[in-house]
Design a binder for these strands. Structure first.
Lengths: 239, 239
DNA sequence: AGCGCTATGTGCGATAACGTACAGAGTTTA
DNA sequence: TAAACTCTGTACGTTATCGCACATAGCGCT
């Protein structure tokens, strides 16, 4: 049986009133997500929704030729599987574990039942979905208007916000897949950050040395997304 | 007083059971939307939601330097103002009329009341929101991976699907703002389509001469979005 | 130690889109 | 009718990213 404090590790669940949480408590399962694991394939039904604790999940749009782009990232502040309660059951996107760690999972049907009580859980999940919408929109603009250097900063900061420490375990190849660019492009952009002393890079391990430095370089997209999450999912506004 | 058949012009309202519609019927207002009119500014509260009949509205992400990109387009199949019922009240994006025409509008509070009955209207609006989500995600990928020629085809087809005839009233300058590219780029891409006999172009009037030709040139993004709208908002699946 | 695999770094020509400038044609206004 | 304005077309050098090729370095395995 999970302890109440386990739930506080996920910010979304942490916002729920205790009685709502209690109803679901026995049905949660803690699972370990491994790097690269797929939680959802394009067009497939999901059996579970996942509330990350210290793991990070990327939502990817995959194209016919195999090229992909990350459209949003989900960590302890959110949930993977919004299409379940939105009513579509499936989405055309994939959910891939970008950073290994723990998550709480819940059977899709149970979440749907809770959602359709039209109480705090519904309000919360809808506000979260709107934040996700903003993240996707901003990703679209960023892809259009900002250069790779800035996009890499945005990606690093969004990931960092969802982790405890300052270390990311992620090869340049994988980052390139997320951003939808060439691996060489990431090498070059990351090289600049490394020479500027903002990060150190070593065979799949990125250490962020100077977070403020990254924030100076990043495009506005980062703070637009962050501010909107803060606004929509802050304790005062939600309940 | 509006006639029931007026409502059938909006596909979303057309999917609602009669009794649901009857409850709201007295509160709808028909309005004329003019080209370039703003229905919603970034971060502003919306007082109304709009159900387009024969008008088209673009959702734009505007950046600090004024550059913009369309992240989704809404026509007779949808509604402008999802942030109202999603709970966030505002969004960081703008809603601009891209093609003049009629729409039905409803006071935001009335829609929210209806939404929180947790009945057919809620189910419908949530499914629509998921479709919107897909459109945004696909826009992000398309911005990344496809060239301007293909994106223009996608944009023309998405607009065409939301219009009665084959004529679009839209300057190259405006299309460029939507796609987030240079006006000259649109001139060039449109020139290719014109020379190929697919469209004819004259001072803000585009006539689509060969729709199938456009569908042959367009990237997969168009059909991903269209298929997902069809799946999520088709009569058999919704109610 | 030696081999193979993986991750990173670098170089270079090709390409798409950019910024800018300007010309011409059509439309509106004075 | 002339002037002003709007929309479209064209040209050209610049830049960011791509695609490809290949070098180097770290790590694991035998």
């Amino acid at each position: 049986m999970l302890e109440p404090r386990d739930f506080q590790q996920n910010a979304l669940l942490g916002l729920l009133p205790q009685e709502e949480l209690n109803r679901l408590l026995p049905h949660f399962e803690e699972v370990t997500l491994t790097l690269g694991q797929s939680l959802c394939e394009s067009g497939q039904h999901m059996n579970y929704v996942y509330f990350p604790l210290d793991s990070i999940v990327s939502l990817l749009c995959v194209m016919e030729n195999g090229a992909s782009t990350e459209i949003a990232v989900v960590g302890y502040e959110g949930v993977v599987g919004v299409s379940l309660f939105m009513g579509g059951e499936t989405t055309p996107s994939r959910a891939i574990v970008q950073s290994a760690g723990k998550a709480l999972r819940l059977k899709g049907q149970l979440l749907k039942n809770e959602f359709y009580r039209a109480g705090p859980m519904q309000r919360l999940l809808l506000r979260y979905t709107q934040a996700l919408l903003t993240q996707m929109a901003q990703t679209a603009v960023c892809n259009r208007h900002h250069n790779l250097d800035q996009q890499l900063c945005r990606w690093l900061l969004l990931s960092l916000d969802r982790l405890r420490g300052n270390e990311l375990i992620m090869t340049q190849e994988l980052i390139a897949n997320m951003l939808g660019v060439r691996r060489e492009g990431v090498t070059e952009a990351a090289g600049k950050l490394q020479r500027a002393g903002l990060i150190s890079y070593h065979r799949g391990h990125i250490n962020v040395l100077d977070r403020l430095g990254l924030e100076e370089r990043v495009c506005e997209c980062y703070s637009v997304v962050k501010d909107e999450y803060d606004r929509l999912l802050n304790h005062h506004n939600v309940m």
